[in-house]
């Protein structure tokens, strides 16, 4: 949630060229979109050397959990939980921050880094010289951003469990839930990044992500808002993710969660379709 960083890749010194062809590409092409795995593998190899960057990104929501959950939680006491009875504030806020950590991981990669690869590294130009197509690039970028969202969410879940903030076995579904948040974020992020003209445009990413982070029911229940604003907040994608994860972790799932999940999946599918078409157009396929 801090000032806009530059792309991690363009700033990380000389780019490692990983074009070793260890096996034939047809190994993977048995199911649609499978070629994109090759690009995901490239990113995984690249980030093996930058693991501390990924680890430090995962630490950010943990600091918020300690500060807001423990520090401010003591000033608040209990709030109304999803099941209708009051829960301690730290149990209330933790699933919200879990959703934020998945969003953060996916957003950083699908915006700043995709832009860097698209405009400065010209990575996709060389990718298109291989059997991969523009749709594979879109799939792989979204897939890698989801992987990064999951990499942020897993340590957060472990810390939540260690702090005794997971109170229900339904929490086992929290990881797929976080992956869904990451998927919707990543697809929308890649799609919107294809419309960016310069680094200055990324100010808008910050301008959108900060209010999403603060007002999506992460830190306080919807009942705090006036009724009209509450209706607007309900349409925010992160709000749906926060509600899904909170209901699961606090053990009060309802059938309505499926509708919320479908809403996030629809955003993801739309973003994916737009991203594929736009990347094809930008790279003149």
């Amino acid at each position: 949630m801090s000032s806009a960083p530059e792309s991690e890749e363009t700033s990380a010194g000389p780019v490692e060229q990983e074009v070793r062809s260890t096996s034939d590409a047809s190994d993977f092409s048995s199911f649609p979109g499978a070629l994109g795995l090759r690009l995901i593998e490239r990113h995984a190899r690249f980030y093996r050397r930058l693991w501390l960057v990924v680890a430090s990104g995962a630490a950010e929501p943990l600091f918020y959990l300690l500060s807001v959950g423990i520090g401010i939680g003591g000033l608040i006491g209990t709030v109304q939980g999803p099941a209708g009875y009051p829960v301690p504030y730290r149990e209330f806020v933790a699933p919200g921050l879990l959703a934020v950590s998945a969003l953060n991981g996916a957003l950083n990669d699908s915006t700043f880094n995709v832009y860097g690869r698209l405009k400065f590294e010209k990575l996709y130009d060389s990718v298109l010289a291989t059997p991969l197509g523009a749709q594979d690039v879109a799939l792989a970028e979204i897939g890698w951003a989801v992987v990064r969202g999951i990499l942020y969410a897993v340590p957060f879940l472990i810390v939540m469990a260690a702090m005794g903030l997971i109170v229900s076995p339904w929490a086992l579904l929290a990881l797929p839930g976080a992956a869904l948040v990451a998927f919707a974020t990543a697809a929308a992020g890649v799609a919107l990044t294809t419309y960016m003209k310069s680094w200055q445009d990324f100010e808008y990413v910050v301008l959108v992500s900060v209010p999403l982070f603060l007002f999506s029911g992460t830190f306080f229940p919807l009942s705090v808002y006036p009724h009209v604003i509450g209706l607007i907040v309900e349409w925010m994608p992160l709000y749906q993710g926060v509600v899904i994860l909170r209901d699961l972790v606090l053990g009060a799932p309802t059938w309505a969660l499926l509708w919320r999940a479908a809403y996030l999946a629809a955003i993801g599918a739309l973003g994916m379709a737009v991203a594929g078409r736009r990347i094809a157009k930008l790279l003149l396929v």
Binding site: A12, L52, V53, I72
Partner: peptide
């Protein structure tokens, strides 16, 4: 010589500082 240390200053410096320095509680 690289930008990586600056990311660490933000994540391990300014964010913990802004959360634990008597700011929000």
């Amino acid at each position: 010589k690289t930008t990586t240390p600056m990311n660490y200053i933000i994540r391990f410096g300014s964010i913990p500082l802004s959360l634990f320095s008597g700011t929000f509680f």
